[in-house]
Design a protein around this nucleic acid. Structure first.
Length: 943
RNA sequence: GCCGGUGUGGCGGAAUUGGCAGACGCGACGGAUUCAAAAUCCGUUUCCCUUUAAAGGAGUGCAGGUUCGAUUCCUGUCACCGGCACCA
């Protein structure tokens, strides 16, 4: 300790750094935050549990962003408080270790992604530890750890080995399906509907079963870039070319591993009611699932069988004046092949369809304003009217939704209306709406009464939309022309990637293309080491793993296929696609419960305990899950799906993984904008006489709030802030900025405010010259009351994640306790030992290092992190007198002091106020019509 | 276009159930301390008008409404942020 200054114990950056590193090391040595599982030594079953989880980070080479510690600090405060409040707390951290940046770096440099990732993880761990988060580091893992990959692959195999039993509305083992098929208690479904199992050959039986697996090989149209050697996301394709490099991209139907997430659509929707999640996130998931009720209807096509459509408005069947199929619809191919259709029509069809197919979904959307399409040459019969109507093809109908075909009702659907108007197709009004009449200028969508809807077989004229829908569906079902149907926007989940850096699928193929799973005992299946990560240039997708021939080409025995299903000597090829980056994050919350379990993905007892229902949760699961709203749909939907699958198969105990979810707001930054709205980097702007000007030109610029970005040079590095103020100040600053959920701008200038608060708190407790506690001999009653109020306020605010107001309350307390006191001997001001201890206990979750240091200097040999949360005495929260505002006609006219006992009672309060010296002149001589006296709050005279 | 959210001092924000608008912090201004500065401490700080003062008026995006009383509830409207977007 430096002794050349008079105040060696002043709380400055140097001392904060020393204190923080010392306590971090001590917490590590003592494993202070290690949580015991049921059955382990030190586990106390009498305590309630609390599972506080952060969305784990993808450790990028760039290091921690200021957005990471925002949510992490919030959960840390809550977890530290819960620990002090007597909970068993599970608060883990780990790494989402599979991502594109590491693989792209490998392509460029040849450095193995595991090396890059390992370095990034080490850096992230170092940075996170420097914040003093109370993680149980003994539970740390990365999703690429072989021990973790093993169980990711095992869960995938669980899906592979399951099917969805619609009658039971849950997933069941595929073996049970086969047993029922063999026993004849269940008939083949799907494409094999109506076939007899006993008469199907082994290959047909196999295809029938494979087609029902929850992880299945399915056909999907993808954006394939031959030059880059991979499929691309829609967002990565512009004008039919790759965003990177401008190479041509083809839309290609490809066999890929899929998850049958659509089987869970209804439950994923319904169970949103169970969880305590932000309304916006539940709405986004609900929209993403996109449930819509309606009917499927068959239209007879002249010379080509039936065309099935999905509609939510079967009541408008009489108004269907034409049909439209997607350009990819099989009917288009049969029209092109049909010699009975005029050659010029087919020529135009060919041109249109080829153009449409080569356009990505993105381009279709961009050009959505103008409807395009061509006549296919085919005609269908409207089953209700018996009239012949033309079949068109147009790219406003999507192959991926419903049946890829629609009946067009131009009078009551704006899209159909625009198309009919553009191509002069007939329009018939069949719904008369209240208020809005169809006038031929636009479609009238909505409910009303059916009109023009009568024929020999079916009449719905006069029926309300709801009744007409039921009547039409009943007619369709009785005449076998269609049926009631629920459709979802949600599609099955494409789970294959042509990447190297991902979990390999534990599956092999024989020479006929049939697939066989690898048994659990042979897992994990690890990636082969490769020297060359370059994608393979070709016209068909060849994942990089294809280059590892020795790995790909093996035998069933070496691969670990059960000899009962394939002889060990059989030559097999491994799957060369890998799982996407999402895989690891679909179940990590489960692994944290029991991360070293070698026999199971999570121990049953540990899962039941940590993932069970907490005392302040509405449902079982993680008690608080905090992360960015950018994961509102994808990660959170995928994780829920995996969880439900595991639940159905009896591997986990509850239907939802995350009981309560919270999104921290985005931390933005300041940027500057020229008059033409272009942005100027922060370092090119200076302040001159209160206004901001661009340094190079002297032109004034406006200060705005913008995302942190390298180009604006307004990115804040947490390491720099900690070096200047310490981690406690950083934690406190991010929590004091505003409500946790709000997006808020970083303002470096404001950090001084919370830093000064910590300095005052430190100085309130310790002598800056000697580092010893400054203890009052006698408690000041006013401070004692303020302390009880602070304990109550901070505790309540922590419960509702309102850390900004909790910090404000602590600042108020310190300011009050620092002021000269009312005691007879002013030198006795400040806090007594007992008061200081309680204050340090409430401060500890927020500024844990400073709190430990003061705690230790008070003579404690144990950690304040393990101390008991102080209790606010209810009696100390009420003052003997309260200030009550007095209003006349709703306007504030006076403030009077009222004894609490009187203020508690409306009648007494009114009487007291009426006779109060300050109030009498206000109401004197005025007729009082009414008095509103709110106990403890106010008195209002209506004159 | 549809869904969700947000609009409060110079700035970040507070007001938990309809009851004192602006807690707390930043910044600014004034003072104490100091040879001086830094640091620290004390005070003032929504706006407007009149004023020596006391006091008064307006005010939570905008316009209305309900109420003794509205930042809070209702109707309409504007702006911004996020999501979805030819899903039949």
């Amino acid at each position: 300790m430096a002794s050349d200054t008079p105040t060696p114990f002043r709380y400055d950056a140097r001392l904060a750094d020393e204190i923080e590193r010392r306590w971090q090391a001590r917490w590590d040595q003592q494993q202070a935050f290690r949580a015991s599982n049921p059955g382990e030594a030190g586990f106390d079953a009498s305590r309630p549990k609390f599972y506080g989880l952060d969305m784990f980070p993808y450790p990028s080479g760039a290091g921690l962003h200021v957005g990471h510690p925002e949510g992490y600090t919030a959960t840390d405060i809550l977890c530290r408080a819960r620990r002090m409040q007597g909970f068993n707390v599970l608060h883990p951290m780990g790494w989402d270790a599979i991502g594109l940046p590491a693989e792209q770096y490998a392509v460029q440099t040849g450095v193995h992604p595991s090396v890059t990732t390992g370095k990034a993880i080490d850096n992230f761990r170092r940075q996170l530890k420097r914040f003093g988060f109370s993680y149980d580091w003994s539970r740390e893992f990365a999703t690429i750890d072989p021990d973790y990959v093993k169980w990711t692959q095992w869960i995938w195999l669980q899906a592979y080995d399951s099917w969805y039993d619609r009658d039971a509305d849950r997933a069941r083992p595929i073996g049970e399906l086969m047993a029922e098929l063999d026993a004849g208690t269940r008939a083949p479904g799907g494409a094999w509907l109506g076939r007899s199992w006993s008469q199907m050959d082994p290959q047909a039986r196999r295809d029938c079963v494979d087609g029902q697996r929850l992880a299945y090989l399915g056909q999907q149209t993808v954006n394939w870039c031959p030059k880059l050697g991979t499929v691309l996301a829609n967002e990565e394709v512009i004008d039919g070319r790759s965003e990177r490099g401008g190479h041509p991209v083809a839309r290609l139907p490809l066999k890929q591993w899929m998850f049958r997430i659509t089987a869970y659509a209804d439950r994923l929707l319904a169970d949103l009611a169970l969880v305590d999640w932000p309304e916006s996130t539940r709405a986004m998931q609900s929209e993403w699932i996109g449930r819509s009720e309606g009917a499927e209807i068959d239209f007879a096509v002249h010379g080509s069988g039936a065309l099935r459509v999905f509609t939510t408005r079967p009541d408008t069947l009489f108004g269907a004046t034409y049909m439209v199929v997607a350009p990819e619809h099989p009917l288009v191919e049969s029209a092109l092949a049909s010699t009975s259709i005029d050659g010029s029509i087919r020529g135009a069809l060919r041109v249109y369809v080829d153009a449409a197919r080569n356009r990505s979904d993105l381009e279709r959307q961009a050009e959505a304003k103008v409807k395009t399409g061509v006549f296919t040459g085919l005609e269908a019969t409207n089953p209700a009217t018996g009239e012949r109507i033309p079949v068109w093809t147009a790219d406003y109908v999507l192959m991926g939704y419903g049946t890829g075909a629609i009946m067009a009702v131009p009078a009551h659907d704006q899209r159909d209306f625009e198309f009919a108007s553009a191509f002069s197709l007939p329009i018939t009004e069949v719904v008369r709406m209240d208020g809005v009449t169809f006038d031929g200028s636009r479609a009238t969508a909505g409910d009303g009464v059916a009109v023009n809807s009568a024929s020999a077989g079916l009449t719905i004229d006069g029926l309300s939309t709801a009744d007409a829908k039921s009547r039409v569906i009943a007619w369709l079902e009785s005449t076998r022309r269609g049926e009631r149907r629920v459709n979802y926007r949600l599609r099955d989940w494409l789970f294959s990637r042509q990447r190297y850096w991902g979990e390999p699928f534990p599956i092999v193929y024989d020479s006929t293309g049939n697939h066989y799973p690898i048994k659990t005992s042979a897992l994990p299946l690890t990636l082969p080491d490769m020297a060359d990560y370059q994608p393979i240039e070709s016209d068909t997708p060849l994942p990089p793993l294809g280059k590892a021939r020795a790995w790909v080409e093996t035998t069933a025995g070496d691969a670990g296929v059960d000899p009962a299903i394939l002889p060990p000597s059989t030559p097999v090829r491994r799957e060369t696609n890998t799982m996407p980056g999402w895989a690891g994050s679909c179940w990590y919350e489960l692994r944290y419960c029991d991360p070293r379990n070698g026999h199971r993905f999570v121990g049953e007892e540990a899962e039941r305990y940590w993932m069970g229902q907490g005392i302040d949760s509405r449902t079982a699961g993680v008690d608080l899950y905090v992360g960015g709203s950018e994961h509102a749909v994808l990660h959170l939907l995928y994780a829920r799906f995996w969880h439900k699958l595991l639940f159905d198969l009896g591997h986990v105990s509850a239907p939802e993984p995350f009981a309560k979810l919270f999104h921290q707001g985005l931390i933005t930054s300041h940027a500057y904008q020229r008059p033409d709205k272009s942005l100027v980097p922060v370092d090119e702007v200076e302040e001159r006489e209160g206004t901001f000007v661009e340094r190079a030109t002297g032109v004034p610029v406006a200060s705005i709030v913008a995302k942190m970005s390298k180009s604006l040079r307004n990115v804040i590095n947490p390491d720099d802030v900690i070096a200047e103020y310490g981690a406690d100040t950083f934690r406190l600053y991010e929590m004091a900025m505003g409500p946790l959920e709000a997006s808020k701008p970083w303002n470096t200038r404001d950090i001084a405010g919370v830093f000064r608060f910590l300095q005052r708190a430190w100085r309130l407790c310790l002598d800056e010259a000697r580092g010893v506690p400054l203890l009052a001999r006698l408690p000041d009653p006013a401070i004692e009351r303020a302390l009880h109020r602070t304990i109550k306020k901070v505790g309540d605010d922590i419960d509702r994640l309102a850390f900004n107001t909790a910090i404000a309350a602590m600042i108020e307390f310190v300011n009050a306790a620092t002021r000269p006191t009312t005691l007879a001997n002013p030198e006795d001001g400040g806090l007594t030992r007992d008061q200081m201890e309680r204050f340090i206990q409430v401060l500890a979750p927020f500024a844990p290092h400073l709190a430990e240091e003061v705690w230790a200097r008070l003579g404690h040999g144990t950690l304040v992190a393990h101390a008991t949360w102080p209790v606010a005495d209810q009696a100390m929260l009420v003052d003997s007198e309260v200030e009550v505002p007095v209003q006349v006609l709703g306007k504030l006219r006076a403030r009077i002091m009222v004894p609490s006992a009187i203020a508690r009672d409306a009648a007494q309060l009114e009487a007291y106020a009426r006779s109060h010296a300050e109030v009498v002149p206000l109401i004197e001589g005025k007729p009082i019509r009414r008095v509103i006296a709110v106990p403890g709050k106010l008195v209002n005279f209506v004159v």
